[in-house]
Write a protein that binds this DNA or RNA. Structure first.
Lengths: 340, 340
DNA sequence: GGAGCGCATTGGAACGTTCCAACAACGAAC
DNA sequence: GTTCGTTGTTGGAACGTTCCAATGCGCTCC
């Protein structure tokens, strides 16, 4: 139950600790016979290098830390996968912590990573204000994914949420909708620009008076609750743009329970293009973000900065892409007094 | 960009490093004035304790490591949440790594945690054989979640997969089905007992000749592929039990694309009761596992073992629960020559 | 007024690595 | 036959903490 150290291996193999260290790091300045002896001794003892000790002396951990706000959103799985692939390719390892969308727990999750002296930090859709990222960025290269930041010490990788939201509204207007509501993402990452995009697109289509946002969040429950409050108040919109797919799925369940048809009674559009949105019995119209690439790019940005002194911050903004599926269609009844 | 150490803080506050250490650990044997001076100095310098150094000298990291086979399955998010809650409550922190269902990457993910000297290891649905767990368990308390193990050095927390599968078959038989197929979970954790349970229940209902298993896995794609191959071969079963909900959702999408109605043309039952299964437009009949509790218990088992010498291994098996929803119903046409 | 006590504070050792300068052994070169 | 270089190997220092035994100091008590 006790871990053997490099010294135990050295004794067992009858060489010095330094030589064991060389072998373990794959040096080629070691004679074949010593190498063999060391490797066999290590195997016999079940030796495993101690990362803490290595981190101390090398002043580098070769680990990138990833804080994911919410593991329940399958959107993040692909981002993480991208990070993992890029980090591994560069000889780094990735470890994750999660704060479950609770700002205070997210801070704790970030602190854990920083105390472990990760060489780079990736924050995936952190909720709340940006202090966590800013503070972290003073000691370690930091990149935020999924949430725009203007901070000069923090990198970011996002899609153009505002533009994506506009595309959704354009799409719905093109289908003939005017009464388009929005269930927002609360304080979630990217929720703000999506709402702003919705509002500005509505205005530019001359639909300012139809702007209607209700509060939601990035979860199924949030989407369901948002839909319920939308249905509770006055006239029912003919279409609704929901801040992300997970919430849209929650909202769809509510519509179904109410016996309303999609898209005939209401068109529904989400955001993220999670695979479940495509697989969902009725395909969900949504906006695609290149998740895997976002993860890869985030890792790339962070790794590039490691060891640099005062690197400039970079902000990558990717283009969103509308994916039209069956959940959006023309409104069932066109209103009287309207051009065809 | 360079991290201040406890010595920097000591200089800044005009005290010794030992005193700074005491303050940082919240000792009460420190005078209020020194405490204040130290805390202020630490804040000024942006001091953050170095976990690697602490781990070295304490010979304990106060971290539990969690390896998740596949982040795409929302099932795991709740397990992790349970782990996180229990670990935090006990003064530990949880960090995660993932192997994305690829055995070799899973081994790497486990190695990363072991090198970091986690005090406990939780493997969530590891795929492949159990060597990873067994090897790890020699140096650190290890528990496997979601996959039964007989190994005497490894704890496990599972639900009774076999029993759950039997309940599914019982349910379908009760509805009047005889031609019940199974799309399995391939080499995924728990796939084997679920298939065994399906087969044994079929036999005990006198339906041995109707046993039909096709290969799938625990992903949407796997479920979809399984369903396609099922539809491709001969007579269509009236019901199908799919190894998990994610795969079931993939299968439902295929059925939908083929224009087949659920449950009229085919009843579909999954496993796991992920929230998306409930929210899915058509509620999915499934088997519930107490995910959050499983995570909590796993953390509990591991934490209890820390510091013990040769603790006995424990295997917790929880009872599954059938959740009947709209995706299962009586077969549309009862066969000729059958009792009503 | 000296002994004894309790309390706040301190320096040194230890944890398991990596890095570096130094060393032994040996053959090549003049 | 001394010098030089190369190759393989080595011990000590350092990394940032915690722990422990020891220290100094002010009080109480007789």
């Amino acid at each position: 139950m006790k871990h053997p150290t490099i010294l135990d291996v050295a004794d067992e193999a009858g060489v010095s600790k330094s030589l064991v260290s060389l072998v373990m790091r794959g040096s080629d300045r070691v004679s074949p016979s010593s190498r063999k002896a060391v490797l066999e001794a290590a195997k016999r003892l079940g030796y495993r290098p101690n990362a803490a000790a290595r981190t101390m002396v090398r002043q580098r951990s070769y680990v990138v830390g990833v804080m994911i706000s919410n593991l329940h959103n399958p959107f993040f799985a692909d981002v993480i996968d991208g990070v993992d692939v890029a980090a591994t390719a560069a000889g780094y390892r990735a470890i994750l912590t999660t704060g479950n969308g609770v700002p205070q727990r997210e801070r704790h999750a970030i602190a854990t990573l920083l105390e472990m002296r990760v060489d780079g930090l990736i924050l995936v859709s952190p909720s709340g204000r940006n202090e966590g990222a800013i503070e972290a960025s003073h000691t370690v290269p930091t990149v935020v994914v999924g949430k725009a930041t203007r901070v000069s010490t923090v990198d970011s990788v996002t899609n153009d949420d505002r533009r994506g939201a506009e595309m959704v509204v354009d799409h719905l207007v093109e289908l003939g909708h005017r009464d388009i509501a929005h269930i927002d993402g609360g304080s979630g990452a990217g929720a703000r620009p999506r709402r702003t995009g919705y509002e500005s697109a509505m205005r530019s289509h001359g639909l300012a008076s139809h702007i209607r946002s209700v509060r939601g969040d990035f979860t199924e429950e949030g989407g369901g609750a948002g839909m319920r409050s939308l249905l509770g108040e006055g006239t029912r919109p003919t279409a609704v743009f929901i801040a992300n797919d997970l919430a849209a799925i929650g909202a769809l369940a509510v519509l179904d329970a109410e016996g309303l048809d999609v898209p005939d009674d209401m068109s529904v559009v989400g955001y993220d293009n999670i695979t479940l949105a495509a697989g969902h019995r009725l395909g969900l119209t949504t906006v695609d973000q290149p998740r895997h690439d976002m993860g890869r790019m985030a890792a790339g940005l962070v790794l590039e900065k490691i060891g640099q002194d005062r690197p400039p911050s970079r902000h990558v903004v990717l283009a969103p892409k509308l994916i039209a599926r069956a959940s959006s269609g023309p409104p069932a009844v066109s209103r009287p007094g309207q051009s065809p």
